[in-house]
Design a protein around this nucleic acid. Structure first.
Lengths: 145, 145
DNA sequence: TATATTTGCATCGTGAACGATATAAATAAC
DNA sequence: GTTATTTATATCGTTCACGATGCAAATATA
């Protein structure tokens, strides 16, 4: 058996699996509030800075607008945000939080710590996390280019 | 702004993004042969050991059978594999490679090295990869439980 | 100013993921 | 041996991802 093709030697399979499992860990916490993980990411972006055009949100999440647009529409239908044409540029759709969308932050305060705690283990500790973040950031930076 | 909710402090967002971008790196290499990344994963599993029941493939990839079944059906339609009822247990569907599915391995020999090279950078080197793998494996192990 | 190009967003189609549910075969319990 | 439970797989519905394409507003060019 060719070593190169072993699942155990694949970085991508590990990232893919870790990402899926960690997203699943968010599921019960977010589902309680009717949120999916990508929707939670949109909220993170809007909590940092409200009233952004679709494009800025997509760029921040490194997603395409054809992924983000339907996502935003579902969130609009849930009453979490509003979408309105930009004043100075009519092509832009400005996405703004509603009161309901803003208030969710307070109701989700425990989520980061809960999920953070769920991954702490032998090799992943407050001391090693910076190194992990650094490697993942480098990979992301390299692949963006 | 609450530090805990910053995108930059989220492990999950990094894993999610790195996974997506790395999968995208596979896309041109696999698409040339009509494959998607999850289909490639199924081939990796079957190249290691041919003629496995659906459940074993799903367990190996840490996916549910309701994800794997349609995936396998598409691959069967492409002539990459066959699905046939198990002899000693009629509930099982045994998945076996066709000649076409087997031959793909030879045509994809360069894929692991090409993608591997695409992620090499400052902090991700042959020396640091074991540490990265170790942390991701620990995270996966922790979240599986 | 008329035309061409770019930009921002949306629509469409396909292929995952995954929760919930269904079905048939195998096994256990009675 | 009949009934109950478990197991292996499949079906269904919803939500992403994302390539391809469309369209209208803004900008650049002629």
């Amino acid at each position: 058996m060719d070593e190169r093709f072993k699942l155990e030697n694949q970085l991508c399979f590990r990232l893919y699996t870790a990402s899926r499992l960690l997203t699943q860990a968010y599921h019960p916490l977010l589902g309680e509030h009717g949120l999916t993980y990508p929707q939670y990411l949109v909220l993170l972006v809007l909590w940092e800075k409200d009233a952004q055009p679709v494009n800025d949100i997509a760029k921040r999440l490194l997603l395409e607008t054809n992924t983000v647009t339907p996502l935003l529409k579902r969130m609009e239908a849930e009453g979490l945000l509003t979408r309105s044409k930009g004043k100075e540029d009519a092509r832009q759709m400005i996405v703004s939080l509603t009161g309901k969308g803003r208030d969710l932050q307070a109701r989700l305060t425990d989520v980061p710590a809960t999920v953070g705690g769920a991954v702490l283990c032998e090799s992943v500790t407050p001391e090693t996390v910076p190194s992990l973040f650094g490697m993942l950031d480098d990979i992301i930076r390299k692949l963006k280019a």
